[in-house]
Structure formats: structure tokens, C-alpha cells
Design a protein around this nucleic acid. Structure first.
Lengths: 226, 226
DNA sequence: ACCTGAACACCGTTCAAGT
DNA sequence: ACCTGAACACCGTTCAAGT
């Protein structure tokens, strides 16, 4: 078995087994040795395809983030931001164990830079000043990463006994245990409130001569532009 | 040196050296063996004071989160939420390398539960329905953890060459590198927009008979309560 | 009571050697 | 060209032994 006609490994086979292992056993559960065993091979063999474990994780990150979509800004900045945030969060929520790594070096991946560029362009194109565009992009990422991060960890314990009596306002907290629903609802609430707040701000700071925010109809611009 | 009159170690000395090590070398840079060496002792000695490395990290988490303040709800739900979010973020930003661990099991620490209880109580006491209180508490945590998580990782590369030409909308991105200022500003923008959005929602869903949100003067409740 | 040496079962990574 | 055995420098944790 030292020299098979068809290679036992491909980079894709490694990646797919690694992602399955992370999903199953957590980020700490992924080791090069266990992964190799899973693939019917010895650990040293992996290094013919990957330079380091870090490179493998970056591969996984790229695969997981492939579903992120920042193309919605043609329909307006609010629509673009919403689509980006939702697709981003869904991508992370599909592989929660990988989230701590994904947040590790976001600025260095080409995919992330492409999206950051699209978001920044979409916002400035809609009239947001560049500095606001930067902050709004960052803020949205805070929400997405925070939601994926916090919910991945389980949040509340399943053990009802812990809460009863001790923390009166949390007496129903056990109802949340393991429910992904509350996570998505909380995220949607946060996103909506955030965007509503931005819409109000938009009327104050947006440059004229660009398409206005489509849904910002309920407030009026009552301050002068700075 | 096998039996000193005064013990070489205390739990506090261990904790303080460990936190310094995490701050200096990162979460992966903390090992029980290196920590022991730092304390002039062998790794096995640490297990007289701590059951596991996990327990040590939990100790660090409690110390870092000691500065979080959820007592501001007497001045109104918006004030309480703002104070909690800011003190929470500051606590995390002071030890960014620990953030990935802090997000790991937030629901099981007594401190975190006390704060969660105070926030939930503060919100429901101000008229927010319990389900909203839960979601708002979660949302705020998303923002805080996301901000601490994303900014800890550095975000953008310092290398200007990477951006020029390739990503036109990010041509000024290098200006952000290493600047903590943009992180705090982005967080403040996100928090303000989020709270503005909540204020509007408050007028729609808040129970009567409670103190109203202090600063929610600019909108009117135009829908019936559900 | 407190610390240690030695061991156990793991890691990521390298590299000469096998076919 | 592809895989392996063996080694190196690490881990967290346990436990009998020293003083």
C-alpha cells in the first residue's frame, strides 16, 4: 500500500473529513493524527498536501464562507446589508464549532476581503460617508460573529434546578436550552433594530445625489447635513 | 525546597501569572508546564490548587468579568443596557486573548447568571415583555462579544500593498490597522443604532403601567398592543 | 502539607527510507 | 510520486515518593 495507482488522498478528501470531524468532535477534537486515522493513513502523509494544520483550517474556513452573499446592494443599502448579514450568519451557524477559528484572522482571507469591499462599495454608493461605511461594515460583523459565537456555546444549561429560586428573573430560562429558534429570533431582532437605527442616522449623514434608502420612509430628515 | 515554610503557590498567584501569560502569549501560549516554569515550580504542583486547566481558565474568566456592571437599570432600561454593554465590552477588550474562551460557556458561570438576571429583570421591570427581554439580552451580548472577538483578531492586515488596486473600496483600509479607536467607535455606533431601533419597538410592545423609556420621545406608538 | 520525578497518553511536524 | 516509521519537542494529568 506504499504506492497506490490512485493516490489515497486529495486535498478535498482531507478537507471534507476534517470538516466532518470538527462538526462532530469540536475544534479541539480535530487532530492531524486522528484525521489521518480517519482517512486510513498516517499523520505524516497529510503533509504532502498541506503545510500546516493552520492551512487546513483556512481551507475549511473558505469552504464554510462560500455561501456568504454580498451582492444585494443593487436593491439598496438596507437590502444589501440584510442579505449579507443573514447569509453570513447562516454560514457560521451551519458549522458552529469552527466559529472561534473563523473569527481568528478574518482580514487576511481573500473571500472576506471581497465581501468587505462589496459592502463598503455598496454603502458608499448609497450615500454613506466612507467612515460610516467602515463602521457599519464592522458593526454588522460584530452582530453576526457575536450571534454565531454566543449561540454555538449553548448558552444556558439544560439543568433547570440551577435557576429555580436562585435567579428569579430567569425562571423560564430552561425553556431556551438547546433551542436554536430563540437564537435566530434574537439575531433578527438585533438586525432589525440596528437597521432601523441606521435608517434614522442615514437621513442625517448621507450624501445627496445617491439613491436613498428604500425603506426609510417613516422618519424625516430634520437636521442639516454635516 | 521540597517543603517550604510558606507555600510557593497560592491560587491567586497562579491566576495572576496565568492571566499575564495569556495577555502576553495568547490563549494557545498558556500551558500548565510553561506556567509552572514561570512560577518556579513543576507542572504537577499546580494540580494541588486546580483540578484542571479548564478550572484555571474559568478562574481567569471570573476575574476578567468582575468589572461588568448591570446595576444601571434604575435609571431606565436604555441606561441600564448601555452601562452593561459598555462595561462588558471594556472588560473583554482589556484581555482580548481570553475572549474565545469567555464565549465558550457563558451560561454556566455564576457571575454571568447574576448579570443575565439583572438585565432580564431590568427590562421586564421597564415594561418589556419577557420574550423581548430575553432576545434583547441575547442581542446585546452578540454585539459585545462580536465586537471583542472581531477586534481582538486584528481585522485588517498592516500591509498596505495587499489592498491597493485589488479592492478599490478598501483603499483606505490600512488606515484602520491596529487602531483601537475605530473599534470603539464602531461599537458605539452599533449600540446607538441598536438602541434607537429598540426605542421605536418599545413604543409598540411595552406593557403599560411601567416607567417608560426615558429617551424615546421622537416616535409615537401607532399600533395596537398584542 | 507541599512539591517532585517519572510515567501515560496524547499533540504537530520533519525527514530519511521504502516501493 | 506517494506513503511510512521513527524521531523531536511539545502537551495535560496522575501518582507514588520524598521531606
Amino acid at each position: 500500500m506504499a504506492r497506490p495507482s490512485t493516490p489515497l488522498l486529495t486535498r478535498e478528501r482531507i478537507r471534507s473529513a476534517a470538516l466532518a470531524m470538527v462538526d462532530r468532535d469540536g475544534l479541539d477534537g480535530l487532530s492531524m493524527r486522528r484525521l489521518a486515522a480517519d482517512l486510513g493513513v498516517r499523520a505524516a502523509s497529510l503533509y504532502g498536501y498541506l503545510a500546516t494544520k493552520e492551512e487546513l483550517l483556512t481551507d475549511l474556513a473558505d469552504e464554510v464562507l462560500a455561501g456568504v452573499d454580498s451582492s444585494g446592494f443593487t436593491a439598496g443599502w438596507r437590502e444589501g446589508l440584510t442579505g449579507w448579514a443573514r447569509s453570513y450568519r447562516e454560514a457560521l451557524a451551519a458549522h458552529p464549532n469552527l466559529v472561534p477559528f473563523l473569527a481568528h484572522s478574518p482580514g487576511r482571507r481573500p473571500q472576506a476581503l471581497r465581501h468587505a469591499d462589496a459592502v463598503h462599495g455598496g454603502l458608499t454608493g448609497a450615500g454613506w460617508p466612507p467612515r460610516y461605511a467602515t463602521m457599519i461594515g464592522a458593526s454588522t460583523k460584530y452582530l453576526v460573529v457575536g450571534a454565531a459565537m454566543t449561540s454555538f456555546s449553548g448558552g444556558f444549561a439544560d439543568d433547570v434546578e440551577v435557576y429555580v429560586g436562585r435567579y428569579p428573573n430567569l425562571s423560564q430560562a430552561h425553556l431556551l436550552a438547546g433551542h436554536e429558534e430563540i437564537d435566530r429570533d434574537s439575531f433578527e431582532l438585533a438586525l432589525t433594530a440596528f437597521l432601523d437605527g441606521l435608517s434614522r442616522l442615514y437621513d442625517q449623514v448621507a450624501r445627496p445625489g445617491s439613491e436613498p434608502g428604500v425603506r426609510s420612509g417613516s422618519e424625516k430628515a430634520d437636521r442639516s447635513r454635516t
